[in-house]
Design a binder for these strands. Sequence first.
DNA 1: ATCACAATACCCCTTTCGGGGGATCTCAAA
DNA 2: TTTGAGATCCCCCGAAAGGGGTATTGTGAT
Lengths: 210, 210
Amino acid sequence: MDIRVLLADDHQVLLDGFVSIFESIEDVKVVGAVKNGQEVLDFLEENQADVLLLDINMPVLNGVETCKKVTRKYPDVKVIALSMYDQQSYLKRMVQHGASGYLLKDDSAEEIEKAIRAVTQGERYVSSQLQDRLTSIDFLARKNKTVFTVSKREKEVLELLSQGFTDQEIGEKLFISFHTVKTHRKHLLSKFNAKNSAELIKKALEKGHL
Amino acid sequence: MDIRVLLADDHQVLLDGFVSIFESIEDVKVVGAVKNGQEVLDFLEENQADVLLLDINMPVLNGVETCKKVTRKYPDVKVIALSMYDQQSYLKRMVQHGASGYLLKDDSAEEIEKAIRAVTQGERYVSSQLQDRLTSIDFLARKNKTVFTVSKREKEVLELLSQGFTDQEIGEKLFISFHTVKTHRKHLLSKFNAKNSAELIKKALEKGHL
DNA sequence: ATCACAATACCCCTTTCGGGGGATCTCAAA
DNA sequence: TTTGAGATCCCCCGAAAGGGGTATTGTGAT
């Protein structure tokens, strides 16, 4: 039985690229190529897949959310996260949400094939480029609470901060006291481990919270 | 004579993808696939190419700089910029620096082929997704002075700012007075039209200056 | 039912920012 | 050769940010 792969990435070139790559692999069939998380769910409604190669950065429904929904609804579908960035934060979040693998777009076709075979066997696969970090991540995941959540309100504050508004102005926009905004910002700073708002915005953008 | 294409993108998957795509096109030959701007220059030192498919976001030497250097040194090489983002700021900068084409990674293989053929004919090609914006860009490019430069020193300050350092700390790192840092930051704020450092970092990241 | 956490608001205090100037000096381009 | 831009330094001043607390709600998970 062939391995049925569903591709999800918002970039057409990448989809085309993957299709071409998989054409040369005997027992791997690309059964679908979609452009966002919503389409993943729509596709799985009516079709079957063994592996989902899922880009993290997508519009409409992002990778993390899609991964969560897919693994909950279709536990048999193995999800391999695909990211441009070798950031532990992503890896952690995806693994937490049920991903079986994590690859970088920088990885070779061979590595991707290996990953697909591994996850269909029920194994986990992480890009060799990240292997060395894995131990520390596992360790951190258990001991430390590095995977933090950003609440709805904090997200709003973050967004307005990135647009250059002051606490005062944000307070007015959200109909809350500027003290509260200060508190939210304070929490954000400590969650992202940023020394000030400039670094906060950078890290938030990097980690995909903006 | 075949069209010799040099690929430059830091993501292996994309390179593989392009190679696969071009394999099915008779008269297009991929003569090289490199991972950063420096490698582009190194490659062109010893080899020839007709078209350079150049990703804008690359480490070591970014797309804009690479484009500038390549078009200056090898005027016969047609550069097609490749970006994930449909931001006019990028388009403008690349065109200013001699790019002959601009594609989105979201574009289809067909569109890419079309673009390659167009630029080898000496034409210009812009992703159809951006066609409608072109007029306004041309207009802006003439009337307004939207394209500003960020000096070397300002870039350094920007980088350190994004890492959460204060003017004082940046001054120490760069062996200059914090007054000077303040001045640089002030200039950056006005250039990027940002109300504060948070917005500055966001805009700098968006426009690819970080 | 308890516990954790999000969301709200307030206090104090110090440091940093941000906006407005002005002033050299150098180097390259017009 | 003049002009402009980059880089450097300095002033003032008020507004914000940042760090440390405390505290009250409400809600959702265990």
